[in-house]
Write a protein that binds this DNA or RNA. Sequence first.
RNA 1: UUGAGGGUAGCUUAAUGGUAGAGCAACGCACUGUGACUGCGUUUGGUGCGAGUUCAAAUCUCGUCUCUCAACCCA
Length: 450
Amino acid sequence: MQFESLPGFREFYPEACRLRNYIFSHWRKVARCYCFSEYDAPVLEPLELYIEKSGEEIVGQLFNFEDRGGRAVALRPEMTPSLARLVGAKANSLKRPVKWFNIGEHYRYERPQKGRLRAFYQFNVDIFGEAGPAADAELICLLIQSLQSFGLGEADFKLRLSDRDLWLLMLASEGLDEAASAKVLGIVDKLERMERAKALESLSAILGEQAESFLGQVERLTTIRDFAGLRAFVEALPLEGARQEAARQRLAEWTALMEHVEAAGLMAFLQIDLGIVRGLAYYTGFVFEAFEASGEGRALAGGGRYDALVKKLGGPEMPAVGFAMGDVTLIDLLESKALLPKFVDAPDIVIVMVGADERKLALLDAASLRAVGYQVNYPLKEQGFGKQFKAANQSGARFALIYGTDELARGAVKVKDLTSGGECEIRRSDLLQTLPELIEHGLMADDGAR
RNA sequence: UUGAGGGUAGCUUAAUGGUAGAGCAACGCACUGUGACUGCGUUUGGUGCGAGUUCAAAUCUCGUCUCUCAACCCA
């Protein structure tokens, strides 16, 4: 019987695994540099957790089943609900702001396609307990720097920033209630990929004859790319009283956020784009997505503020903002930009030995070298010299240590620099002392004389 | 869930109805004290799976699985 892996699930052969760990290590490093703490949560959760957050429809997109105890469970499709529960449960004892991150695998029962699989890794980064725009800005900077750490520059990706609060104000000024606003935002979200006529049709169902002029207004808003333009647009909205005040405050928060990113020197990556609204209803303020600079392809990362979610999932009132970045789109992008390093598992040292007696001494030395952290390899079975050298060379090792009868009789081994071909003899007792210098400087081809 | 296009050895591929072939890789030998070269050799498949048409199927037909791309969805 032949078995294959399940659709949308990857097998990580060593090379792919190295790549995966490379991605993880960069994510982790940047998060630590921003002083976020790593947490983890169960991979299997009560199905209800996701229904509560996203509605019944979500079930069709989950790996879910009934466990032996009759519980309806699901593999996690995202981290946020688990995280909200974790934070909610200890909300009163956590020092704020709570800055946490996770790297974990997530599962969605969808048909795989470019940039999307059924099992994928996500980098989740969140801040709880800080309502001000500095938290949003901090995450935006972290997101930008994490992408930069892979060698991506401002010509490679942009972070598109939008604001659901401004949208709601704008929609309120058009006289839309909450339910109608949600529907309209759903359409705005798709506008970029939708034909205008079709969008108009969908809007007419909600707005009737105003649809045409409304769509014009939407198009003006979504094409704004600078803050002055956005400010002018918002100030021109027919708002009064509390709403006018809210709009003024919101613009101040925009200013604060942008000043923060500007001060961090990352403004070149930020692009105002109110066309981003994110499909999810639970976002409450700033929302953002990172895209390849041309705007092609899937979002590299997405996030925003979700101030109401912790409470909805049973916790206390707790402002929150976060984002997630997936490994699949990121790897696709790095590959297309030729930014994936070539990974090699080359040993530091390969031992070449002549026979069984020499092998015993070699094993002893290998153990001490390994104990202090060198990557040491040797053939597992007896092989001829020529073959051992060939293998040593192919392994990419920097040095060969040669355990030959003559050298060992003198209490020494021969060291060969496999890149230069230089050789010299070292007393076995001096190995640990001498190797660091050899590795630092290498052996010239004529060093054997010294 | 829907639509389109693919699946031949570990990888890249050839064979348009008539003996499934090559390159790379891997392994072995030349090669028991010095590698990146070379030479020789070996291994690997019933063509994703199943059925059908045919004297004959990798090739044509149907079903199915899977991959890729797209639609839906996108937390």
